[in-house]
Nucleic acid binder design. Structure first.
Lengths: 208, 208
DNA sequence: TATAGTAGAGAACGTGCGTTCTCGCGTCAA
DNA sequence: TTGACGCGAGAACGCACGTTCTCTACTATA
């Protein structure tokens, strides 16, 4: 079962938890992500997390100093997952224009997940930004990173500086709208709008 | 001080609160809106609301059956304020195209408010939709209403059925982005994107 | 002035939270 | 087998919340 043998060499001091701690952290963070994403952060107590993760409260507090630390790490992991999902979807496309549009196809697949409940960063911002500045900061960093990424794709496609922020607005609006409506169609609307904006932008130089 | 004289005609039963109740409700709801909007709903207790409104807890619970009822009424009033703000901004424009673009100018002015903290409905959805279905419903109704309104403006401008949802995505994305970034520039990006989408859509018939 | 009724201040109540502590069991070295 | 340790279960603690209740002071009439 365990891919790694227990560290028998640390004999003297009964320490034997290095690998188990990693697995426990993973379980805790996955459970926290599930719960926070589906119910919100404040509505999920540490006891809910204990039940969902199967870890004792003692273990949870040995692994993390506080609930807020768990929240921050969950958001950081969500960011990594998002970056990986977007970039891998984008990399499958074969032209700069297709790479930009791949973002909306990726969103469409995500919106169709049964447990899709919007962008965790937007949700966290609405819930906690007014009262936990660190969360506001993490959300801001996440969105700034996405804006930079899209700007780079736009530059690769030869688009103007205005196009990036416009395409980002479509992506953000689609996430919000799909979450609230409970349907994935916003991704299609965003994609078609993006096509129009991209083609208009790339043809400006041609037409003039 | 008081613009209205006390209702001395209700002599028999010491009842004398009809008008005062209205004023008290107004104070309570304005205070609740301020607090919920700036800090989030769960982070604001009834005692905070008591301090901000200047009304006693007893009075608050005489006026409203529960905190959730206050939350719902605050959202309903926000909806009315939003509708009034958007429609009055739109009505000042002189052409169908300008009327659509007036939405983004209205957003830009709103984003520049010192206390702008995003769309209260999006924020409430992120915070409570997973745990208070009534809030999710009110938010959904609010967004559906806006989509219908924009669709009508698009129809008046002779636009196609796809244009409305696309313009809505820009507005939603701008609200989210302006809130998280803390800057109003998203309104300008949304406006320019909207111009492109509108012109492309209205010229399809011409070009074909 | 005396009295009934009202409303505000805030204590009280029950609950649930984040966090820490206690207890008892199981595990392993000698 | 013994004994010490480590861990999980969950009780305990302090606090804050939503809601209700109590007490006091004041207003208005006779």
């Amino acid at each position: 079962m365990h891919p790694q043998s227990p560290p028998a060499e640390s004999a003297g001091t009964g320490r034997r938890t290095r690998i188990d701690d990693d697995a426990a952290r993973e379980r805790a963070l996955q459970a926290a992500d599930r719960l926070y994403y589906s119910r919100g952060i404040q509505a999920v107590g540490m006891d809910d997390l204990r039940a969902e993760s199967g870890l004792s409260l003692k273990r949870l507090y040995a692994l993390f100093p506080s609930k807020e630390a768990i929240v921050e790490e969950v958001l950081h992991r969500r960011h990594d997952t998002w970056v990986q999902g977007v970039t891998s979807a984008v990399q499958l496309a074969h032209s700069p224009r297709e790479r930009l549009l791949a973002i909306y196809d990726f969103l469409g697949r995500w919106f169709s997940d049964d447990d899709f409940r919007g962008c965790a960063f937007i949700n966290s911002f609405g819930e906690l930004a007014g009262v936990v500045p660190r969360v506001a900061e993490i959300v801001r960093d996440h969105k700034t990173d996405f804006q930079r990424y899209v700007a780079q794709l736009v530059a690769d496609a030869g688009g103007s500086a205005d196009l990036g922020p416009q395409l980002v607005l479509l992506a953000e609006g689609a996430q919000v709208t799909a979450a609230i409506a409970g349907t994935p169609e916003a991704a299609g609307h965003a994609r078609r709008a993006a096509e129009t904006l991209i083609d208009a932008d790339l043809n400006v130089g041609v037409r003039a």
